[in-house]
């Protein structure tokens, strides 16, 4: 994991601050470079609620007044990081009550943003990539893949580092289910899926999170609880075997009537139902999903609505949970 040591210049009033990282390897002159009515830096991204790392401040001493004004209008960054500490940077931070840090080399931080801007936290004198794990759950035909891919596109349009991935991840595991090359029991089925998941998280997902990336996961541990739970396995056991997996930052459950869902699937492609796609089993899985949603483990979104509305609702959930505002780049 890339961790960058930071030196506090003004004492941070908050112990930990997390947000989207904006980097600019140059000097900024707030008067002229920042639009005080929108908080946009050099006509690109807004700095509102961001962790903003720049080489330093320059230009007119009016600069601090502009940062102060942004703060009063709720458009200020969450934290400022500079390579060169000067009077304008310090004054801006102190009068606006924004934590200011010094970094040895701005290029150390820029690396984190090479493939789109990262989600990071500043904690204990370090800038650490945080990333975000977004799990999209739901029964078959709920639109998980479509919604996930829309979400991915929006994140990328907004300049984020983001990937889409799905489970089961490994072909060899998927083939066992498709080819019935092994006599499966509910237990072996669960353990195969969970084994796939541990490897997937460890080798693919974590690596991405450690770079501050956003990982959109099409099915996660809740699928095993719902689907293998529907086969009669005790839910506690399904939770137990998955307890070393990280909790996602956002877990969305796209809810749809299973019959509707399967109709969608059959309509979309000329195909027959796969091993997992059995109405009765899906009905039971849905019950378990709904129960998890009612307990707050998952956030329910009604997936029977038109796709754009579903996507919008998912974005609302993501924004709320991650403290982002990605709607602005969605059009």
């Amino acid at each position: 994991m890339i961790e960058v040591p930071l030196h506090p210049v003004t004492e941070a009033t908050i112990a930990k601050v997390c947000g989207r990282l904006i980097t600019y390897d140059g000097l900024i002159s707030p008067l002229g470079d920042i639009d005080a009515t929108t908080g946009r830096l050099k006509n690109t991204f807004t700095i509102k609620n961001r962790i903003v790392a720049v080489k330093g401040f320059t230009g007119s001493t009016v600069g601090p007044y502009i940062i102060y004004s942004l703060k009063k209008r709720g458009l200020a960054p969450k934290a400022l990081i500079v390579e060169q500490v000067d009077v304008n940077a310090v004054t801006s931070a102190v009068i606006s009550d924004i934590p200011l840090f010094k970094v040895d080399k701005i290029s150390d931080i820029e690396k984190l943003n090479e493939e789109g801007s990262a989600l990071v936290c500043i904690e204990s004198g370090k800038l650490k990539p945080r990333g975000a794990l977004i799990a999209i759950e739901g029964v078959d035909g709920a639109g998980k893949t479509t919604v996930s891919k829309h979400l991915l596109e929006i994140f990328r349009k907004c300049g984020f580092r983001a990937i889409y991935t799905y489970e089961p991840y490994y072909d060899s595991i998927r083939k066992i289910f498709e080819n019935k090359s092994m006599d499966l029991t509910p237990e072996s089925e669960a353990l195969l899926l969970v084994a796939d998941r541990y490897s997937h998280i460890s080798k693919v997902v974590k690596r991405e999170l450690e770079r501050g990336g956003i990982v959109i996961l099409d099915r996660y541990k809740y699928s095993t609880i719902a689907y293998q739970g529907a086969l009669g396995l005790p839910l506690e056991w399904l939770r137990e075997v998955q307890k070393y997996l990280p909790d996602p930052d956002v877990a969305v459950y796209l809810d749809i009537n299973p019959v509707e869902g399967l109709k969608r699937k059959l309509k979309s492609k000329e195909r027959t139902l796969t091993y997992f796609e059995n109405v009765e089993r899906i009905e039971k899985a849905r019950e378990i999903y709904l129960d998890m949603a009612s307990k707050g483990e998952l956030t329910l979104v009604d997936a029977s609505l038109e796709l754009p509305i579903v996507v919008e609702k998912v974005i609302e959930v993501v924004n709320g949970k991650l403290g982002l505002e990605i709607r602005e780049c969605s059009s």
Binding site: A36, V62, Y65, I66, Y68, S69, K72, I95
Partner: peptide, 8 residues
């Protein structure tokens, strides 16, 4: 200083 300075 504009409106921002005036405000401060």
């Amino acid at each position: 200083i504009g409106d921002f300075g005036l405000e401060f």
